[in-house]
Write a protein that binds this DNA or RNA. Sequence first.
RNA 1: GGAAGGAUGGCCGAGCGGCUUAAGGCGCAUGUCUUGAAAACAUGUUUGGGCAACCCCCAACGUGGGUUCGAAUCCCACUCCUUCCGCCA
Length: 423
Amino acid sequence: MLDINLIRENPELVRKALRDRQDDPAPVDSILALSEKRRAVLNQAEALKGQRNAVSKEISKMKDAAQRQEKIEAMREVGDQISALDRETAQIESELHELMSRLPNIPDERAPYGKDDSENVVVKTVGEPRAFDFTPLPHWDLGPALDILDFERGAKLTGSRFYVLQKAGARLQRALIAWMLDLHVRQGYQEEYLPFMVKTATVFGAGQLPKFADNLYKDHEEDLYFVPTAEVPLTGLHMDEIMDESALPRYYTAYTPCFRREKMSAGRDVRGIKRGHQFDKVEMYIYCKPEESEAMHQKMLADAEETCALLEIPYRVKQLCTGDLGFGARLTYDLELWAPGCNEWLEVSSVSNVGDFQARRANVKYRPADGGKVRFAHTLNGSGLGLPRALIAVLENYQQADGSVVVPDVLRPWMGGADVIAP
RNA sequence: GGAAGGAUGGCCGAGCGGCUUAAGGCGCAUGUCUUGAAAACAUGUUUGGGCAACCCCCAACGUGGGUUCGAAUCCCACUCCUUCCGCCA
């Protein structure tokens, strides 16, 4: 959510943000009009309420019954007017809120301008792709050959885009999750186990509602949403709270499955396990003061990079252009792991500075130690990392000519010491 | 799923139609006193909105409606919490 005062004071800044994101700037004008109307109606209502409060006080002190009755009649009239104005205000506010909740965040001035993901900027590339003396297989061949990945049974159980991991495949994913959580704890994050189903207000707070309802799974009977990312419950953790300044920054990490309908991505990435309706992810999340969020962003990026580096898989860092930036993000770095089998860079992490955008939605504030006015916190989120793709990268980079897969050093303690996955 | 009780400020807790934004206590902040601290005393201590304005005004006692000139207080619905029963990994 943007600050309505910012929109009123600098509407052109907001229009530009929308244009840079390849969105329509028109809602800004509707918002300005509604906001003016709201203030006009509110002023009328408040003047009448002030009058009513004063007269009610008089009535309570009046002795003369006739005079008293006269005032009561007059106030009955005023009361009706107030109700009408209150209804009008509520109507205007609900329209205003609807429009405001669909406005994306304003990109940081450092975010490069670009129309879509083709204009993202590669910031750096780390590590050399391994030289193979055989043709590396894509994971959708490698996995079934090792009998650790079963697409047919996934489809049988649920449908397309679902799969079953078996034996060392299932364990390798669990090893990655456990290793990454432990790594993030060492990096200073506090581990959380969170609900995988959340209520509407929680999803709204993180920014997925109302605009992205299409992409969410929902239990309509209970009015609960399945989390599309741990970012949602992690944002909700401090919803409607005012923290002491000394409590910031707060670092969280959590593993959750993620559920996404991916309606808009139907037809993309249909082979393999790159894009499914259910996937696992370990997430990092930080709440901090505005003035430290840039430093926190750099820390989180470094922490996500460390995850890639320790796996000893080539990766690159991209800065997202304005046209590809997520709804709530001001500035985002994507991390991509090289996958020699499917021959592409796989996005495994998105590290974003959200500014106060989610904090405004979820009402997360802090009280400055100097006794100043309460302020909205800043929030940052980043994957560390998305699971199916990290799994793909491990399998494809560590495969050998005989079809086996070497277990990366860092994961061996979680694989019962095994150094190789063989058929 | 059934039954009972409950939800008030950072915390505890009173209020049960107008004198209540809210008694009292705790905590916290500032001041007086003190060599310093403690104690004592004094003062202050919510959030959001309107406004040029921390002058003032409006709103908020779980949430949403209703009754009334006026609601923390009365009525209705809902949510959550606690306890007991049932079911269950």
